[in-house]
Design a protein around this nucleic acid. Structure first.
Ligand code: SF4
Ligand code: SF4
Lengths: 183, 183
DNA sequence: CCTTATTTGGATATGTAATATCTAGATATG
DNA sequence: CATATCTAGATATTACATATCCAAATAAGG
């Protein structure tokens, strides 16, 4: 490409930044639901992965993998051994959606600046030019902050009461389903 | 797993929902930067993919792929043929970060409810129970709305003026870099 | 003490989407 | 006509979410 002055430097660009993205995985949804179930079922002892998975038709092995970060984050407690399982570490009113999301997705932000401004044109600029965070990055972070604030304002208790409002008798229905043996 | 009453139904769960996630890809960052460049360089005709890519050390072929949705979204205009390239379709003040993100990522939301509540325990519930949107879904959507609102409030013009504040003389520096021929 | 049911951690497999390149066709310049 | 560009599609590559499996530790019950 011998345009007037375009170096095909392109290929040796340094991948300055880390992984670019954060997605909201199914795990977040599973985790939130499991917390609600645990609140309903947790009164008589811990609930095993198998029971939780059956309640939503989820793959047990993978669900177990998703629950473990919740334990690490202090949202659940686990007990090993026969009759073991998971419990809520604190009441639903003290668990926010942000807690769940942060536990599973990690603290990374959705927008990760790759600092592409340090390549090409800007490569010649002195390092001082990059002390200040990029304007795009700042705007993205600001927006994401709003999102996190909103998630942090939502406790699972509020969500549960919403759900029970919409479908009265849900709680007993769930408890009966679990009590009823199935082959 | 013959627990007291756990069917390993698990495997035939219906993958009710679509793809789960939306990530913020590099394309968004590239696109935003390119719009800024186009504003600085676009006065004397359209700018080709090659020039834009060189400016940030990006892979030209892929950058071109990313620019095309911007054209479709009406953020850029393109002209084919020799001396062709891309232009801003409207001033930076009328392009928000949300516009760019929506053009590249599509309109999908980051959190997509997989309706796992319709499996397992809930499978027996009447369809009427699912008319109302799930409480978790609603909370997630609300938070995401905040995020979109914040992004929609940020025009590229504001970002550009921020950048110029932080690094005065950026504009002329860029224009000189592009004027200077490189082998 | 032995068996069973569980969590934990690691290894590994699978599938899908982002990233990247390539080619052929259309369009414009001169 | 030769060149430079955009467009569209096919394809390759890579990263990551999803999913399964296994070995080890832990506890309960006979
Ligand atoms: S725009 Fe901001 S985020 Fe994107 S590369 Fe430049 S500095 Fe990083
Ligand atoms: S919690 Fe809400 S979002 Fe998640 S599956 Fe149930 S309904 Fe869908």
């Amino acid at each position: 490409m011998p345009d007037r002055g375009i170096t095909p430097a392109v290929r040796n660009r340094t991948r300055t930044a880390t992984i670019e993205v954060v997605k909201i995985s199914e795990g977040v949804e599973w985790a939130a639901h499991c917390c609600l179930l645990l609140d309903w079922m947790g009164e008589d002892g811990p609930v095993s992965t198998a029971r939780l998975a059956a309640g939503y038709g989820l793959p047990p092995a993978y669900l177990n993998k998703q629950l473990q970060p919740l334990v690490k984050a202090g949202i659940l407690t686990s007990t090993a051994g026969k009759k073991g399982g998971f419990r809520l570490a604190r009441p639903l009113g003290e668990i926010t959606l942000m807690d769940v999301l942060a536990a599973i997705e990690g603290p990374a932000e959705a927008f990760q600046c790759a600092e592409i401004r340090q390549n090409g044109v800007w490569a010649d600029l002195p390092a001082s030019a990059f002390r200040a965070p990029c304007a795009i990055d700042a705007a993205m972070r600001g927006a994401e902050l709003e999102w996190r604030r909103a998630l942090a304002a939502q406790t699972l208790a509020a969500i549960q009461s919403n759900a029970e409002l919409q479908a009265p008798g849900l709680r007993t229905q769930v408890q009966e389903w679990y009590a009823r043996p199935r082959q």
